[in-house]
Write a protein that binds this DNA or RNA. Structure first.
Length: 209
DNA sequence: TATAAGATTTACT
DNA sequence: GTAAATCTTATAT
């Protein structure tokens, strides 16, 4: 059996994440490759990011860091961009975020969905009975498939545990769709802000609501 | 200490 | 379409 092969990628540098235009970073993460080498079992999994959401505390009522709320959970968002923010939600799921912007500006981008590339067999085991388009088509599903848990909170994305790389894919504006974020009905006037981005017509994005 | 709600998914009616 | 699963965090006694 022939091992599937993927294109060579270039790990995104700190400067990609520390930019102050968080919405732009959220858009530019589309088409990039999320890589988890999984040092424990030696299996490397990766996939192309196809859906993101921007969270821009302190102004954003949908963000955990709204009004600069600083707690043990939100602390990592106050770091300079380029680290992971992983938190547990609904008693069942982890969510994987990328911290963006300068130190003390608590912005983050939630990675909501990915198209699996490397380690597909392992991901299928972690997501039994699911079609390939459902393996990482949502933020909770993605963390299960990629094996991301709380131990990755605060991980440096320029390090060796988890990172995002450029695969030379350049998306046209017409290939990017946007709309309101999901699951933040409590956020009042921020509910309808079109801060969710996905690759248009990509079957690996989360289902429409 | 207690309570409510959550950046979700799944199974079931 | 509705609800259960299940636990951390924030906020209020």
């Amino acid at each position: 059996m022939i091992k599937s092969r993927v294109s060579v990628g270039k790990k995104l540098a700190r400067e990609f994440y520390t930019r102050s235009d968080t919405l732009r970073v959220a858009r530019e993460l589309l088409g990039k490759r999320l890589v988890v080498p999984s040092l424990t079992d030696g299996v490397r999994v990766s996939g192309i990011i196809v859906e993101t959401e921007a969270y821009m505390g302190p102004e954003d009522k949908g963000a955990h860091s709204y009004n600069n709320r600083r707690t043990p959970r939100t602390e990592v968002m106050f770091s300079a961009g380029g680290v992971a923010y992983v938190y547990f939600i609904y008693g069942m799921y982890y969510q994987f975020n990328v911290v963006v912007n300068k130190r003390d500006v608590p912005h983050a981008v939630l990675v909501r969905a990915a198209e699996p590339e490397e380690g597909l067999e392992v991901m299928r085991e972690r997501r039994p009975g699911k079609r390939d388009t459902e393996i990482a088509s949502g933020p909770g599903k993605l963390t299960i498939a990629f094996g991301l848990d709380r131990s990755y909170n605060g991980a440096d994305l320029t390090g060796e545990r988890v990172w995002i790389e450029d695969v030379g894919r350049r998306l046209r504006a017409s290939e990017i769709a946007y709309g309101p974020r999901i699951g933040i009905d409590y956020a009042e006037e921020f509910v309808d802000r079109p801060w969710r981005f996905w690759i248009k017509d990509n079957p690996h994005a989360s289902r429409k609501r």
